[in-house]
Design a protein around this nucleic acid. Sequence first.
DNA 1: ATATTTTTATCGTTTTATGAGAAAATCTCA
DNA 2: TGAGATTTTCTCATAAAACGATAAAAATAT
Lengths: 258, 258
Amino acid sequence: MTGITRYTRILTLFDQAHPTWTVAEISAALDTSASTLYRLIREMVAADMLESTVESRYRLGPLFVEYYRRLKLTDPLVLSGSKFLRPLLNQIPCPCTTILARLYGKTVMCVAEERSSIATFATSYELGRPMPLLRGATSKAVLSTLPKRQIMSLIEQASPNAQNDLDALYAEFTSIRKIGISETHGQVDAGLVGIAAPLRSAELGINASLSAIVEERKLNEEIRPQIYAALSSTARMIEGFMAELALDETKSNPAKSS
Amino acid sequence: MTGITRYTRILTLFDQAHPTWTVAEISAALDTSASTLYRLIREMVAADMLESTVESRYRLGPLFVEYYRRLKLTDPLVLSGSKFLRPLLNQIPCPCTTILARLYGKTVMCVAEERSSIATFATSYELGRPMPLLRGATSKAVLSTLPKRQIMSLIEQASPNAQNDLDALYAEFTSIRKIGISETHGQVDAGLVGIAAPLRSAELGINASLSAIVEERKLNEEIRPQIYAALSSTARMIEGFMAELALDETKSNPAKSS
DNA sequence: ATATTTTTATCGTTTTATGAGAAAATCTCA
DNA sequence: TGAGATTTTCTCATAAAACGATAAAAATAT
């Protein structure tokens, strides 16, 4: 094992199903000697990525809370977009969750969300949870922002069976990009509808989406156009802010403010 | 440079004041060759800790959002405490922010918070922001949960001048522990009052606090006892939940659920 | 199209990581 | 309290990886 993966493969073990690990368990899972792991874990504890708990077990450490904040304060998508999620909610006249999501490897991940107080339902697009690329308006809108080559490759990897229908599948994303809206019903959560607008900043290399999740039974021909309009106009504003940030970057570059 | 610090000292550069860095800037800041940094950064980008942006600059990557979620789903303090922050808010009859904070190295950090919708003020105890140990009720309540030796050492490090008053300063923490409440006025933010209850789980090694931040001008002799009571009883419940989690841990240990 | 900048690759040298085993520290439980 | 068990750290020889100077390639700017 080499480089940063020595640490990251330890980190990936810690999830909801396995909140704590002993060195012996890690040693078995990763096929690495205990003496090496004790050293690595000691380093990670010192860095606050892990911390020790009862029964000689280890759990995730608080460093991630600090860096989540740093990201919120520095990431151009979160900076530009999250301030619009609450106003967007107020433009939508039914229980709703608004979501800012982005490409995350071969998944899509929500990076900011707001929920109207009257919303009782739960959506699977939780903050920080990797979600499939090809299901749900939120994901499809993200995918639609990518170059054709990349979309094709991702479709192929996600469903290696449908080699022939590739072009047919791709057509959907062309359409989303053209219309500026994707709407899907129950593809992620039964009874819920996702409506999403693609979000892009070519300059910053950002491929994302802005979406509203509502209950299928609350959606009607009066509300739908309001949601479409609210998403589209908000998305345009967010892209405007991102463009501004990109400009700031460029301008401040020679100054090297440090 | 050695071990995990090769990576963490790069990460620590990225904050609100410096959201993006070029390799040349990092090279100057860390006195490390560009060729080494290009290799390290490539690894960190592959791990989603960093990502590249315009003008050959790099910014923090989305991994931290994912691990923030993992922490929320696995950390015993957050798991036990965050569900009480909203109910606690409802027991307090004035604009208020409720906070779960914990020891974080030589600082105190908020790991969960709720804000009443009517609250207009901002508190410095933002989620994920390291705060001084010796100022504010939130911090003092955390400190009060530590063993005497550790408190003394931390006081000494924080204010190396007051060698003589150590015992006097320590008395405050004894008192907080005895009474179960700390209240401070304007020590962190002018015009705001912090009221905090210590939170402890010896079994899990957790030293934390539960606090309510309110406006000084809204606080009176009718409200204060209500806040004290709400904090104390909620703190006891959270400690109960943590104790339960500790027990689960112990029980599930031989089973090694994997 | 050319010049400049950024990024990757190569490679000899230096440094660090690895893992087995010993030692120390901590925990368990009578 | 103390013997036994477990967990963690330490030591050290060997193997492996990191470092950084330089060259090559790729990407950007002019």
